[in-house]
């Protein structure tokens, strides 16, 4: 078996499930609806097929995930991705960290921020607003949360509106959820 990737990277790995994914031919109507696919669609990832083993939660989770990560208004797309990366670094979810660092890099056309975050974590030399974002999202991702009122105030001092603060909290929290699925139910393997 190929060894899982252990180090943080912005190169997206392959996700190898630790449980047996649903076989599409055996999916019930409820599972098909939860995956929002038609029978002719053969390009469904292993992750979705694993989560389809519990269609009731998948059905609610997909629109929730998309609503937090891709809705308009509030925090910018790239800064929303930072919340996802911060949680994924705390929880050491190599796969999620890679996917969302990669998106951040595409959106900002700047790879140096994520390189610094991966190398130095909370001490990364990045601009003060980005640092304030990483700070709150990192502390909120601990168990129990270590975030304080001062961490929110730091975001406000760096120009975030309360709607943006909420979006950051939602993004970091969402990856408290996603990491506990992705990192627990599978392994990140190098792409061929």
């Amino acid at each position: 078996m190929t060894e899982p990737i252990k180090d943080l990277t912005a190169m997206i790995p392959f996700w190898q499930p630790r449980v047996t994914p649903l076989e599409l031919e055996q999916a019930t109507d409820e599972q098909m609806e939860a995956m929002k696919v038609t029978v002719s669609n053969t390009d469904i990832g292993a992750y979705t097929l694993v989560l389809a083993l519990d269609p009731e939660t998948l059905k609610e989770r997909t629109p929730l995930f998309n609503g937090i990560m891709y809705s308009r208004g509030g925090l910018s797309r790239s800064e929303t991705e930072m919340g996802a990366v911060a949680a994924s670094v705390v929880n050491r979810c190599i796969y999620c960290a890679a996917v969302h660092a990669n998106r951040f890099n595409q959106l900002t056309k700047d790879e140096t921020v994520m390189e610094r975050v991966f190398a130095s974590g909370e001490d990364a030399d990045i601009d003060p607003r980005q640092k304030a974002l990483m700070n709150l999202a990192t502390k909120l991702s601990k168990c129990p949360s270590e975030a304080t009122k001062a961490d929110i105030e730091l975001l406000v001092e760096n120009g975030l509106g309360m709607d943006e603060v909420l979006d950051l909290i939602l993004s970091a929290s969402l990856f408290g959820w996603a990491n506990r699925l992705m990192h627990v139910l599978g392994d990140p393997i190098p792409q061929d």
Binding site: V19, V50, L51, L53, D54, T57, R61, L140, S141, C143, S145, A147, T148, K149, D151, I152, E153, V156, M162, V165, L166, I169, L170, A172, S173, L174, G176, W177, A178, N179, R180, L181, V184, L185
Partner: peptide
């Protein structure tokens, strides 16, 4: 069942953080 258990733990972990964050926002 392993997926069901994972979803339960993961959802509650998410919900707890949303609540914790909102409480801090309310303090500010």
């Amino acid at each position: 069942d392993i997926v069901r258990l994972s979803q339960l733990i993961a959802f509650v972990s998410y919900q707890i953080r949303v609540v914790a964050g909102l409480r801090l926002m309310a303090e500010v």
